[in-house]
Amino acid sequence: MTNWTYRLATAGAGVVLTLGVLAGCSSEPPPPPTNSAPVIVPGAPGEEASTIPPGEASVAEQPGPNDADKAFITDMIVHHQQAVYMSGLAPERASSSDVKGLASRIHDVQGPEIDMMNRWLSQHAIPTVNPNAPHGHGRSGGDMPGMATPEQLDALEKAKGQAFDTLFLQLMIAHHQGALSMADEVRKNGVDVRVQEIADGVTAEQSDEIRRMQKWLGG
């Protein structure tokens, strides 16, 4: 082998070795992305939310539900139970297809919501509400907003046809408006993020239904 040939072979081996090292380096997995966004922690009632650095997010303690959160969920279950009961009267008593359709929707939506809220209570070691209770008329210390009285429920049970439609809409509008008041209260005084989401859902869902029921009554 000539001196010139030897130098070419040596240079070629060096290139191959360098490429191999680079290939080995490129096979290393990239470092995981870091989250640079701050984490927002809800504040107590009347206080602003605070932020914590992303590196401390895993050790930050989220605030547990306060009394307003617990009362809202417990009361809203009872509130829902009465709406489900009232809606269950519609198939055999209502004459309007609109009323029957709305009653069916309320029954099918709020029934599962009762189960969901009872699971929330269980997760926080709070006594659950009997899901098989027929319906609630109120609570100790004053009725919940919008709850129908026993006399109003008796009248609804006895009504048929258009009379049922009208009374059902009147009672359910008041019932939904009461739920909106309860949701507004917990948004102001509660701290639990999940409860805030439930309250927002109640507001959006029942505000739309109120508008429809008011339109039917006005027509």
Results as ranks from 00 to 15, higher is better:
Met1Cys: 12
Thr2Cys: 13
Ala11Asn: 09
Val15Ala: 13
Val16His: 04
Leu19Trp: 07
Val21Arg: 13
Leu22Met: 14
Ala23Arg: 09
Thr34Trp: 15
Ser36Met: 11
Gly46Ile: 10
Glu47Tyr: 13
Glu48Tyr: 11
Thr51Ser: 11
Pro54Trp: 03
Ala57Asn: 14
Ala57Ser: 15
Ser58Phe: 15
Pro63Arg: 07
Gly64Thr: 07
Asp67Thr: 11
Lys70Gln: 10
Lys70Val: 07
Gln82Ser: 04
Gln82Gly: 02
Met86Thr: 04
Ser87Cys: 03
Gly88Asn: 05
Leu89Val: 09
Ser96Phe: 07
Ile106Lys: 03
His107Glu: 11
Val109Gln: 07
Val109Cys: 05
Gln110Glu: 10
Glu113Ile: 03
Asn118Gly: 09
Thr128Met: 15
Pro131His: 03
Pro134Ala: 10
Pro134Thr: 10
Pro134Arg: 11
Gly146Asp: 01
Met147Gln: 05
Asp154Ile: 06
Asp154His: 10
Ala155His: 07
Gln162Gly: 15
Ala163Phe: 12
Ala163Tyr: 11
Gln177Asn: 10
Asp184Phe: 01
Glu185Cys: 00
Lys188Thr: 13
Val195Ala: 01
Gln196Trp: 01
Val202Asp: 00
Ala204His: 07
Gln206Ala: 03
Ser207Val: 02
Asp208Leu: 15
Asp208Gln: 15
Ile210Gly: 00
Arg212Met: 13
Met213Glu: 05
Gly218Phe: 06
